[in-house]
Simulated scan of single mutants.
Amino acid sequence: MILADTLVQLAYDPGIAPNEGGLPGLAVLKKVMGSLNLFAIIAVVGALAVSAGVWAWGHHSGGHQAEANGKKGVLVSAGAALLLGAANGVVAFFSALGSQIS
């Protein structure tokens, strides 16, 4: 009997949904997050340029470790740029997916 009561409590739907007008300052928070995303993208551009330079320098100087690190840096920078650019879509996708769970 106690187990059944616990399962009923776990299955309770609180009825909470995202509310865009619920708290003040939402517009400011959106601007701050957008600015942080922009700064991160600019940093990734710098990291990509430095990594490409290290890759080229390592290749032409015979530094195999520097060449490998430059390649890794280019790949990591490209992946970070992909994730930063797709951040809104990824969050929207999983939020919509999560809202379908009942």
Rank of each mutant, 00 (worst) to 15 (best):
P24Q: 10
G79P: 05
L3T: 12
G21M: 04
V76K: 08
G85Y: 04
P24N: 12
G34D: 15
G25S: 07
V8I: 09
I2Q: 13
H64T: 11
N19W: 03
E67T: 05
K71Q: 07
A40M: 13
F39I: 13
A66E: 11
I16C: 02
A78Y: 04
V76F: 10
V91T: 09
G85N: 06
A56I: 15
K72V: 03
I101M: 06
A43P: 02
K72N: 12
W55R: 03
V28A: 14
L7F: 13
G34R: 03
A43G: 12
G62K: 02
A40N: 12
G15H: 02
A86E: 12
A68S: 14
G34H: 04
I42L: 15
G73T: 09
L26D: 07
W55D: 03
S61W: 02
A49C: 06
N19E: 12
L26N: 10
I42D: 10
L82E: 03
L48P: 00
I41Y: 04
L36K: 04
L83S: 09
V74D: 01
K30S: 14
M1P: 06
P14V: 00
W55N: 04
A4S: 10
L23T: 08
F94R: 02
A52S: 10
A68C: 02
G58E: 04
I41S: 07
N37S: 12
P14Y: 05
I101F: 07
S77W: 03
L3M: 11
V54F: 02
G21W: 02
D5G: 00
A43D: 14
G73S: 10
A56Y: 10
A96V: 00
V76G: 01
V91P: 00
G70N: 06
F39E: 14
H64L: 14
N88M: 01
A11M: 13
A17K: 05
I16N: 06
L3R: 15
S61V: 11
G58C: 05
Q100K: 14
Q100V: 13
L82D: 03
T6Y: 11
L48F: 15
W57A: 14
M33Q: 07
G70F: 01
V54T: 11
A66M: 12
Q100I: 10
F94H: 07
G73D: 08
A68K: 05
W55K: 03
A4F: 02
K31E: 15
S77F: 04
G21T: 04
I101G: 00
K72R: 09
G85F: 08
H60F: 14
I42M: 13
A92W: 01
S102M: 02
T6R: 14
A4I: 08
A86D: 12
F93C: 01
L83T: 05
G15S: 03
Q9Y: 01
G53W: 10
S102V: 04
G73K: 11
V74G: 02
G58I: 06
P14F: 05
G98N: 10
A78N: 05
A68Y: 07
S61R: 06
I41M: 13
G62H: 03
V8H: 08
G63P: 01
I2A: 13
V44Y: 01
N37T: 14
H60K: 03
A68W: 09
K72I: 02
I101T: 08
E20S: 11
V45L: 12
F94W: 13
P18G: 05
L75Y: 11
